[in-house]
Simulated assay, not measured.
Amino acid sequence: MFSDIAGVRSALKARLAPALPDHWSIEEHLSQPPTEYRSPLVTFEFTRLESAPEGQTLGTGQVGAAVDIVLGSPKTAEGGGEDDVDQLALTLVQVIDVQSDMYWSTAEKQRLTAGQWVWRVHTIVLTESKEQ
């Protein structure tokens, strides 16, 4: 279980980075979609909280944090780029599948206005809420 909802992005980065290929870049926060990047790029969008993720009842103080993991490829603007980002998405979901406290249900492909294809993988991360 992720230890603190406030640090879910940094915890996700720490968890996923060792399991992903070395040349992938992971950014915890990204205010604007990148228009040019040189390696596969992963970012996190914390979208909602759930009290019963995947139909399971959570204990007191536990929360399901819905985080979209967004993955793009630097090749998507070139020919064959769509196939490249599809393969990258399969790599990402295989890494998520082996996590015991993180689940993905669906993923959808989108095209940015700059022409790049990205995959948005909808995940639930089991975490705890700590009182302030």
Results as ranks from 00 to 15, higher is better:
Leu12Glu: 05
Ser10Asn: 13
Gly79Asp: 13
Phe2Leu: 07
Glu27Thr: 13
Ile5Gly: 00
Gly80Lys: 09
Val67Tyr: 05
His29Lys: 14
Gln110Lys: 04
Phe46Ile: 14
Leu71Met: 10
Val93Ala: 08
Arg15Tyr: 12
Val121Ala: 03
Glu54Asp: 12
Thr60Lys: 15
Gly55Cys: 14
Gln94Thr: 05
Val63Thr: 09
Thr60Asn: 11
Tyr37Asn: 07
Phe2Cys: 06
Val8Pro: 14
Lys75Asp: 14
Asp86Ile: 11
His122Tyr: 06
Gly79Ser: 10
Ala6His: 12
Glu131Gly: 06
Ala107Thr: 02
Gly7Val: 06
Leu41Arg: 05
Glu82Lys: 11
Gln87Thr: 11
Leu20Thr: 07
Ser73Asp: 11
His23Gly: 10
Ala65Met: 07
Glu108Arg: 04
Pro21Met: 11
Glu28Gln: 15
Phe46Leu: 13
Asp86Phe: 12
Leu126Met: 02
Leu112Phe: 00
Pro33Asp: 06
Lys75Met: 13
Thr113Ile: 05
Gly80Val: 03
Ile69Ser: 04
Ile5Ser: 08
Tyr37Lys: 10
Glu36Arg: 15
Val8Ser: 15
Val70Trp: 05
Asp86Asn: 10
Leu58Gly: 06
Val95Pro: 01
Ser39Gly: 13
Gln94Cys: 03
Trp117Gln: 00
Ala66Arg: 13
Val93Gln: 12
Ile96Arg: 00
Tyr103Trp: 08
Arg15Cys: 14
Thr91Phe: 02
Ser31His: 08
Arg120Cys: 02
Ala17Gln: 15
Glu54Thr: 13
Val63Leu: 05
Tyr103Gly: 01
Gln132Val: 02
Glu108Ile: 03
Ala52Cys: 14
Ile5Glu: 08
Val85Phe: 01
Thr127Cys: 03
Arg48Ser: 15
Ser100Gln: 05
Ala11Pro: 09
Val70Ser: 07
Ser51Leu: 11
Lys75Ala: 14
Ser31Pro: 04
Val95Ser: 02
Pro18Arg: 08
Pro33Asn: 07
Leu58Val: 07
Glu78Leu: 15
Glu54Cys: 13
Arg120Thr: 13
Tyr37Leu: 14
Pro40Phe: 01
Thr127Val: 03
Val121Ser: 01
Glu50Gly: 07
Glu78Cys: 09
Gln116Cys: 02
Ser25Trp: 08
Pro40His: 03
Met102Trp: 05
Leu71Tyr: 08
Trp119Ser: 02
Val70Arg: 06
Leu92His: 06
Gln32Glu: 15
Ser73Met: 07
Asp22Thr: 11
Val93Arg: 13
Gln116His: 12
Ser3Asn: 07
Ser10Met: 13
Arg120Asn: 06
Arg120Ile: 15
Ala66His: 14
Glu78Met: 12
Glu27Lys: 12
Ile5His: 00
Glu128Ala: 00
Ser25Pro: 04
Gln56Tyr: 03
Arg38Thr: 15
Trp104Cys: 04
Glu50Lys: 11
Val121Met: 02
Thr106Leu: 08
Arg48Gly: 13
Lys13Asn: 02
